Computed example of a mutant assay.
Amino acid sequence: MSRKKNSSSLNITNNKTWNSSWCIYNQEEFRYLLQEDLVVYSYIRSQFKNFELMNIINLRIYRINDFLIIDLAATYISFTMRELITIFLNSLSIFLNKYVYVAINKLSYLISIKNAFNIALKIAKLIEKRIKFRSKIVKTLIKKVKDNTRGIYVQCTGRINNVDMARVDKLYLGSVPLQSIKAYIDYAFVVANTSKGLQSIKVWVCK
């Protein structure tokens, strides 16, 4: 996003970057666009259950005049999902009174297996289905990541395996230098909602 003189720009971190790109010139416009961003994200989160199979990894919003463009990065897309997205866009366009478009980028297997958020989301879904953190499925997933990267480090916090006492469990393979500036580390944080409470999944992937 280009910066101009006497203009204000928004760059709030959410692990990495704020997922909106826009530039404003007065305080009133700043307040309006920020409120609209929060409304759009809240509405998208409420519809995420319908798009759960897509495994949405990244979402970014762009504005060009009166047009609102939603850029999605997903690992799976089907014809049924396209129909749901069309209905979603029509309802969002009526609500915001704007032209809303969506651009879907389907990630390849090699890119998705290196993505920390995708790995954390998969582990969280397995834990919500009452699969143990140190199960064979989770270890196989971590091994696949290690085969395509330098290393992976996974940390799970909460009432793991439905026990009464909260604790921290870790799984790691390969090398993940967290104190090195030269290393390219991809980090993600996902919360799994289980019958015993919330469990946090943190993943570090060294590419």
Rank of each mutant, 00 (worst) to 15 (best):
K170Q: 06
Q27G: 05
S42Q: 12
L38K: 11
K16S: 09
L72W: 14
V191K: 12
L126C: 00
I87W: 04
I94N: 15
L141W: 00
T194D: 07
N97K: 13
I87D: 07
Q179N: 10
K98M: 10
T86E: 09
T194S: 02
E29I: 08
P177T: 00
K114W: 03
I24A: 14
R63A: 11
D186F: 00
K146E: 08
M54K: 03
S7I: 06
L72V: 03
F30G: 11
L84V: 01
N6L: 11
S175W: 01
K143D: 14
R159K: 14
D147C: 04
K16A: 09
I137P: 03
K98S: 11
K125C: 02
F88N: 01
N14Y: 10
Q47F: 12
S8H: 07
K202Q: 13
N115L: 06
N161F: 02
S46Q: 13
D37G: 04
T17H: 13
N55Q: 15
G151A: 08
I70P: 06
K182I: 08
K129N: 14
N50T: 05
A120K: 03
T75L: 01
V40R: 05
W22K: 04
S46D: 12
S46K: 15
E52M: 10
N105G: 03
Q35R: 10
Y43G: 10
L34F: 08
Y109S: 13
Y41I: 14
K4E: 12
S8W: 13
